[in-house]
Amino acid sequence: MSKESQNKFAEIPGILGMKGWLFAAAVIIFLHFTLQLGLNAYYFQILMFAGINITLAVSLNLVNGFTGQFSMGHAGFMSVGGYMSSYLTTTYFASNPDMLQNPIISGVIFFFALIAGGVAATLAGYVVGLPSLRLRGDYLAIVTLGFGEIIRVLLLNMNIVGGARGLSGIQPLTNFFWVFIFALLTVFCVWRVVHSAKGRVLLAIREDEIAGTSMGVNTTEGKVWAFSLGAFFAGIAGGLFAHYLTTLNPGTFDFNRSFEIIIMVVLGGMGSISGSIVAAIFLTLLKEVLRPLQQITGYDLRMIIYSLVLIGMMLTRPQGIFGTSEITSLFNYFKKRLKRGAP
């Protein structure tokens, strides 16, 4: 019995072994230097949004898809992370403006600010998660929705981060490298967690909480853990977003934002990482395609179209595009067929 045969995804270590992940990181670095030369600014922006959305969708899938806890508060965690990191970088660079000249130093500062934003969001996730994860289904959804609103109102009244005016003059530190390295890191972490003993705890919680706890699983701990890890990446994404837009106000990450991420997860398949990635890219593109429509009609039809897409999906394929499968099982399928076909 080989060590990894319990893990059917491990059959392709070339892609999912450590070397595969490092190769992906190298590709990101390469693209970082090449894309900036040629790519049209508009396409570049779409690419950045797609990358941030991948981080958001995959991290929300950890909570909603793999752990089965319906959270509607992802934008709230983005807010926490976005504000935290922006506050840190703006205060730092206000007193050390010359540091901006040095791309290495400013990059390192940015990295730590993003992590601090992620940690703040994690703490928020922990605080929200501990009491509310005893609730189930609809109740949890409502509480997390309320959490997003509370954050918004709090920020509205915090003068230190600009209150209703918000924060402006945030340094544009977000670039291709940071967006996609963090997207890769998110996918890597969620993938490895989900395919591990820790991940089985989450799956057990999703499948049947009573059975899980009766098999020795500490379900409360598992839920809070997933919630906090999901919040961490949402916080990072919030920071990336803020340093791309360079302005923030309490409405930047409103409920619509949470809703968008939920749609990505549902559309791609609750419990499929590949599904979330594909849906994040698809919906980012759809948004751009719909933009001219808004200019013509004068209405923001996006949410209506999203809703229609979602309803259509629920009627025809309620499990999402990918269901709970991953694109790698497709590779395995072809690999097996090739093997069988070979003489």
């Binding site: 003993a197 799956l203 057990a204 499948e207 049947d208 899980g212 009766s214 699983v217």
Partner: peptide, 26 residues
């Protein structure tokens, strides 16, 4: 450890995964 009158398996997981969840907590 118990079983349930109205079977409560982890329905969408494999047979092996059902045991692994429990074994992880052993």
């Amino acid at each position: 450890a118990r079983t349930f009158q109205n079977i409560r398996l982890f329905k969408n997981l494999t047979v092996l995964q059902n045991l692994q969840v429990a074994m992880d907590q052993n």
